[in-house]
Nucleic acid binder design. Sequence first.
DNA 1: AAACGCTGGC
Length: 545
Amino acid sequence: MMHRTLSNAKTITNLIYQGQSRQAIVLFHQVLKNGFKITEFLLSAIVRACGRVAAIKEGKQFHCMAIKHGFNRDMILMTSLLDMYSKCNNITEARLIFDEMPQRDVIATNSMISGLCWSHLTLEAIELFSNMSRRDAGSWNSLISGLGHSSEGRTGLVFFEKMRLEGAEVDVMTMVSVLAICSDLAALSNGKQCHGLVIKYGFELGYLPVGNAIIDMYAKCGCMEDACLCFKNMPLKNVISWTALITGYGKQGRGLEALEAFDTMEVEGVAPNKITFLGALYACSHAGLVQEGWRVFNTMVHKYSIAPMMEHYTCMVDLLARSKCFSEAYKFIERMPVKPDTRLLTAFLSSCCSHKNLELARSVGKKLLESAPEEAGAYMLLSNFYGLVGDLQGVAKVRRLMLDRGIRKEKACTWIEINKTVHSFQSGDRSHPLSKEIYNYLQHLFKKLKANGYVPDTSMVMQNVDEQTKEEIVLGHSEKLAIGLGLISTPPGTRIVIVKNLRVCVDCHVVTGLISKIEGREIVARDSNRFHHFKDGLCSCENHW
DNA sequence: AAACGCTGGC
């Protein structure tokens, strides 16, 4: 009996160690029925496994068990439980455990900080962090990376600066977290500084995540050549390194190079996974490579026996519909073994609208409405569609639905870095010191463009106002304001780089192209989907958004 | 013997 107990415990911990959390939980339940003796050690391990796979129901059972066995004064087990709850999105219960712990050490507090950030309670996280009497590298890292995951990367960078000023020990995990924030923000100068620090500390060898984060940072800042160089210099690469490279090429619209990298990866014996395939498929989609996309999809299913996720289906529909293969896309959806979700329908509708396939758009739009999407983007698209076909009642209906369902549009925001200072703009923003000059420039530009046949596309304006006001709204879009600032505050001929949190708008896309020609400037715009390189009036995306 | 913070896709 004693022997069996020991070997069962060993099997369970081995399963957890190998990342087989589900199987470990199942086995744990089985051995419990055989009068298995529970220890706080094993309970802690299994609770951690629950957190990994978000098994809140099982996690709660183990919490009860812990109380029944009188383990509730065990700090380590309680830390596992609070961490499990926060990973299962139950921050209230996590906080309750934390507050009721007889004593809390650094690790318990770090875990709480991390949990608070992931629930977007960043002010509480910062407060807890500030009140700590003793902090370790993990405390800083929990806060910095947590801020990054909570869309507060700028604040994360501020804390990184503070960390260095205070002389706190910076480790590999700090660098990986900060680099990930730089990728997110396309903050090239911060990213380069991090790269320098990594070399200075000697972190670049022996720990793959650092090199991977550097590749991704350069790729997401639009510097593919630097990303490539770092990639080539890595003594060891894994599937994540390759995926970062492939995705980077894809987002630049360099689909063929992405596929070339994919082939080389296979030749070098690295097996692609689901995420690699997503990257390769999006690379095809962004470049309009339909045949290649099919090949990639079939390779995934037949050669690697990977079952497609909804995201893969969405990507295929996106690829087909963007290339006007509507009936092929429709057939593809019908043959899917699962029901299309909101995101897939949104992607489909988006292409129907941009190619003005109104009949199909109507039927897809109807399905989309029935699926009650959570994302504001779907409603914006639907509203645009009804506007496009002149169905004002439809527009009103969509707007009412948004109100009823409590869905708010995410605020558009564009930023630009000039001399290491970041200037951020919202739509209609007048808070910038050079605001007057920016608007003056844009108004002049609009006049000039209109005289040459440009007609502002105001179809995306949701407010019920007259055409003149709509044009003013479109003129004040955050992309245009950021570009305007770039133009008036950098020497002629300088390349302009802007970053937007959402997809770039149709009108801004047209106008940016025209500006690039008139002003003789190269303009790079990174939106939430991909890069747009504008030069001489043309965009690298060739309208494959 | 057990606990926190890190890299690739939406």
